[in-house]
Simulated scan of single mutants.
Amino acid sequence: MKWAGVLGITAVIIVMFWYDWPKMDRKWKRERTVFAVLTMVGGILAILLVFYPEMPGPTQWLATLYKPLAKLLGIS
């Protein structure tokens, strides 16, 4: 059943590319690159969440990242 989720995510990404890519002017190299990279990163994260639903979210990552800074500043 997890593979159905992966196929669904892949289908959504393909539709996004199919719809948005032709609308971007060929001169917009940076915009096209950013669109492709962000879409792929989002797709990879979505697929990872299908297989590992207990994976920590972005707020937990930020809390772990800033915990030493909070201790240093005496905030927590």
Rank of each mutant, 00 (worst) to 15 (best):
residue 48 L to K: 14
residue 14 I to K: 05
residue 39 T to P: 05
residue 24 M to W: 04
residue 31 E to T: 05
residue 33 T to Q: 14
residue 37 V to Q: 11
residue 41 V to G: 05
residue 16 M to T: 11
residue 30 R to W: 11
residue 38 L to V: 13
residue 26 R to Y: 07
residue 27 K to P: 00
residue 14 I to N: 02
residue 39 T to M: 07
residue 16 M to V: 14
residue 47 I to V: 15
residue 46 A to P: 10
residue 37 V to F: 12
residue 21 W to P: 05
residue 29 K to G: 01
residue 45 L to I: 06
residue 42 G to M: 15
residue 48 L to Y: 14
residue 19 Y to M: 10
residue 32 R to H: 11
residue 28 W to N: 08
residue 35 F to V: 02
residue 20 D to N: 07
residue 21 W to D: 13
residue 42 G to P: 09
residue 36 A to I: 02
residue 16 M to N: 12
residue 26 R to E: 15
residue 41 V to D: 06
residue 44 I to R: 03
residue 14 I to H: 02
residue 47 I to T: 11
residue 38 L to Y: 09
residue 46 A to Y: 12
residue 43 G to N: 04
residue 22 P to S: 11
residue 42 G to V: 13
residue 29 K to W: 08
residue 35 F to E: 02
residue 17 F to Y: 15
residue 31 E to R: 02
residue 29 K to P: 00
residue 22 P to R: 14
residue 48 L to M: 15
residue 19 Y to C: 04
residue 43 G to S: 08
residue 43 G to R: 03
residue 20 D to G: 04
residue 20 D to I: 05
residue 46 A to R: 06
residue 18 W to I: 06
residue 47 I to N: 08
residue 27 K to G: 01
residue 38 L to D: 12
residue 22 P to V: 11
residue 38 L to A: 09
residue 19 Y to R: 13
residue 14 I to C: 03
residue 33 T to L: 13
residue 38 L to S: 15
residue 35 F to M: 04
residue 44 I to S: 07
residue 45 L to Y: 09
residue 33 T to W: 11
residue 19 Y to F: 09
residue 47 I to W: 06
residue 32 R to D: 08
residue 44 I to L: 07
residue 34 V to A: 15
residue 43 G to I: 03
residue 22 P to C: 12
residue 48 L to F: 12
residue 26 R to F: 09
residue 44 I to E: 10
residue 15 V to G: 08
residue 32 R to P: 08
residue 21 W to K: 10
residue 36 A to C: 02
residue 16 M to G: 10
residue 35 F to R: 02
residue 24 M to S: 02
residue 15 V to Y: 07
residue 20 D to S: 01
residue 36 A to F: 03
residue 44 I to Q: 03
residue 40 M to Q: 00
residue 24 M to D: 01
residue 33 T to M: 13
residue 43 G to K: 05
residue 28 W to S: 03
residue 26 R to S: 13
residue 19 Y to I: 14
residue 28 W to C: 00
residue 16 M to K: 06
residue 40 M to C: 01
residue 16 M to C: 07
residue 20 D to M: 09
residue 47 I to K: 09
residue 29 K to D: 01
residue 47 I to L: 06
residue 35 F to S: 01
residue 42 G to W: 08
residue 36 A to H: 01
residue 22 P to A: 09
residue 22 P to F: 13
residue 23 K to S: 04
residue 46 A to I: 10
residue 39 T to R: 07
residue 18 W to V: 07
residue 20 D to C: 04
residue 34 V to L: 15
residue 39 T to S: 12
residue 31 E to L: 04
residue 40 M to V: 05
residue 24 M to H: 05
residue 32 R to A: 06
residue 32 R to T: 09
residue 27 K to R: 00
residue 19 Y to T: 14
residue 21 W to I: 14
residue 27 K to D: 00
residue 41 V to M: 14
residue 41 V to Q: 02
residue 34 V to C: 12
residue 29 K to A: 06
residue 19 Y to P: 02
residue 45 L to S: 08
residue 34 V to H: 13
residue 40 M to S: 04
residue 37 V to R: 09
residue 31 E to W: 03
residue 46 A to E: 10
residue 15 V to A: 14
residue 48 L to T: 13
residue 48 L to I: 13
